[in-house]
């Protein structure tokens, strides 16, 4: 469904991704784990066109999307939940959700999608008129995921959804990610919390300083000695 071939990106003169190749099949949860600064966020930004690709190709559903403007990539069926949630803090919850559906001009359809988001996150319905910046961290993360779902993505990119959240909230967020996946959305999850990520993913990649150093089923990675040592704190 999504395929990266030797993707290289630069920030100025610094090479951030040094040739990343990965492939995700329809219906999967794939995860990219790695330390701070390994290039996880850059990988996601390259996929949605927020970071320019120096060389290499990105294909989504067999179509080449390398170098396309972000809005085109979003309208082709990819949505992203950015790192740090990045909700619009001075807008209401409702407006944030509406913006998620910015490219959808069918009002009835938008309403239906919003009902679906409320089924996943009932708290958002109660907070509908509240200014998003005043929500708790966990609620903001729910809003960020709900907003991304409003775009009806076939591929959902999640950047560190566990960041800064209490363990209980993290596990409920991960339950919901699994639920979203089971209803048919393919997921690419980037995480520092390797334990959580590998426990829900089908497949994992380990990223170190801009290179993929390991790829395997999530199950195997969880039991891999090197991974255990470096990322699982055992």
């Amino acid at each position: 469904m999504l395929k990266l071939e030797n993707v290289v990106t630069h920030y100025g003169n610094i090479q951030a991704l040094k040739g990343i190749s990965l492939e995700i099949s329809r219906g999967e949860i794939a995860t990219v784990i790695g330390a701070n600064g390994a290039g996880k966020t850059t990988t996601l930004k390259a996929i949605c066109g927020l970071v320019g690709v120096t060389s290499g190709k990105i294909f989504f559903e067999e179509k080449d999307i390398t170098g396309k403007p972000t809005p085109d990539i979003v309208s082709s069926g990819i949505a992203m939940v950015p790192e740090g949630r990045r909700i619009f803090p001075r807008m209401s919850v409702l407006e944030n959700l509406q913006l998620g559906a910015y490219l959808n001009n069918d009002k009835n359809d938008v309403r239906k999608d919003m009902e679906r988001v409320f089924e996943l996150f009932p708290i958002l319905k109660q907070r509908l008129k509240q200014v998003a910046g005043t929500l708790s961290g966990g609620e903001q993360q729910m809003l960020a995921i709900g907003r991304a779902l409003m775009a009806k993505p076939r591929l959902l990119l999640l950047d560190e959804p566990s960041m800064g959240l209490a363990p209980m909230i993290v596990s409920s967020i991960f339950d919901i990610i699994t639920e979203i996946n089971q209803s048919g959305t393919t997921i690419l999850l980037v995480e520092q919390n390797a334990q959580m990520a590998l426990s829900i993913a089908h497949k994992g990649y380990v990223l170190e300083t801009g290179r993929i150093v390991m790829e395997d089923t999530a199950e195997n990675l969880l039991h891999n000695e090197q991974v255990k040592k470096a990322y699982l704190g055992e």
Partner: peptide
């Protein structure tokens, strides 16, 4: 409020 995220909304 946020140009990058605005682009992610399409």
């Amino acid at each position: 409020q946020d140009k990058e995220t605005a682009q992610l909304m399409g």
